[in-house]
Write a protein that binds this DNA or RNA. Structure first.
Lengths: 205, 205
DNA sequence: TAGATTGTTAATCGATTAACAATC
DNA sequence: TAGATTGTTAATCGATTAACAATC
């Protein structure tokens, strides 16, 4: 695959395209166009065509894009044409909410285990998982070859847990802790902080 | 205030600066520099100076930035030098986790009420709030002059709820539903979807 | 064929970086 | 004063958009 420009920002939009394609499919559509996608997503049709063209030719002139086909292609590009096992760290309110979330599996991810270091929580049932001690983390990550983790611990615990995850070979961390994590290059962190979103929007209030 | 370029992307970084300043303060620091902030945040020092200079002059040559002072200035710029009341829609697992979250108030936001339309949930105690019926939403929003909402309902319910929120005059929506919301200009939506983050990172796996 | 829409090029627009005078 | 760091300018870099030939 040719990579003559960094696609980081483009890759960031592909999951949105994938989500919208699923939505359109549920509306009964079989075909869509860059214009329809653009309108629904609040982007320009040129941007969508350009983004897609970076990875290949997926449409037909005069017709548009076959939704199923484009979904398959995008899933392949994003490597979500398989299921990635995940470790969830933190069995607090948020951790339990994530453990109950049904939306991961259809999109290429599955929670394999949930960890906490509070003795009161260890052994508790959460969804169809039992909360394991943090001391089990290395073994589970190794045995299940886990490469993705969700971090749902308080901010003050996050740096140490992140360091452990990195050491165990985790290379993608979905971080719910309200703190900027310092990780080596090669490890990716995606940050989800409600306060960052709220403060951002507050500027415009 | 002069606005000769769109600061959207800059405004998006200010909450990160604010969060890092708090972190440095907790380490006992009184002063920081664009270089220190840059290293900790993984940005360039030039970018941080440029971002700040867009809103004013907050530093001293040779010295750097007084942390407390810069925090106060950034809070004022972002309009989080006050507390915004919020309505939370959805009393599922995620809604309850958000209702228990202690991190909103120190950052300028407070949950005023939580709503759901499931009869089983209405009246339940969640944190120190009682779950109210959706039919109460208009009254509460009006009486408390609420302008910010958190949407924590399933994707299929989200568009209708968002439309209601917009109609009631809500102008900032923190959206946890995995769907792109269509709102009029003037209403801002900040999207938090774990799957989007995971799929984005999966590209690099 | 006529109409529609893609994929792609070139132009435009905007964001980041490098460099440095100003100054603490 | 010497050293450090800001605020700002100009240069660079990258992303978006407009336009259109190709083609279904």
């Amino acid at each position: 695959m040719l990579r003559n420009q960094s696609p980081e920002i483009v890759v960031g939009r592909l999951p949105l395209y994938l989500r919208m394609l699923e939505f359109l499919k549920k509306e009964g559509k079989l075909i869509t166009s860059s214009q329809e996608l653009a309108e629904r997503l609040g982007l320009s049709s040129a941007q969508i065509r350009k983004d897609l063209s970076y990875f290949g030719e997926f449409g037909k002139q005069g017709t548009g894009y076959n939704i199923e086909y484009l979904q398959r292609q995008l899933r392949e590009i994003l490597h979500v044409d398989r299921v990635w096992e995940m470790a969830l760290i933190g069995a607090g309110d948020l951790g339990r909410a994530l453990a109950h979330y049904q939306g991961f599996v259809p999109e290429g991810f599955r929670l394999e285990a949930i960890f906490d270091n509070a003795p009161k929580k260890i052994g508790a049932q959460v969804g169809d998982l039992l909360v394991l001690s943090m001391s089990e983390l290395p073994r589970v990550v190794r045995e299940k070859k886990i490469r993705v983790a969700i971090l749902a611990v308080p901010a003050d615990a996050a740096p140490a847990v992140a360091a452990t995850l990195v050491e165990l070979g985790i290379c993608a961390i979905l971080n719910y802790a309200p703190i900027t994590l310092n990780v080596p290059s090669g490890v990716r962190v995606y940050h989800l902080d409600p306060v960052v979103g709220l403060q951002n929007m507050a500027y415009y209030l």
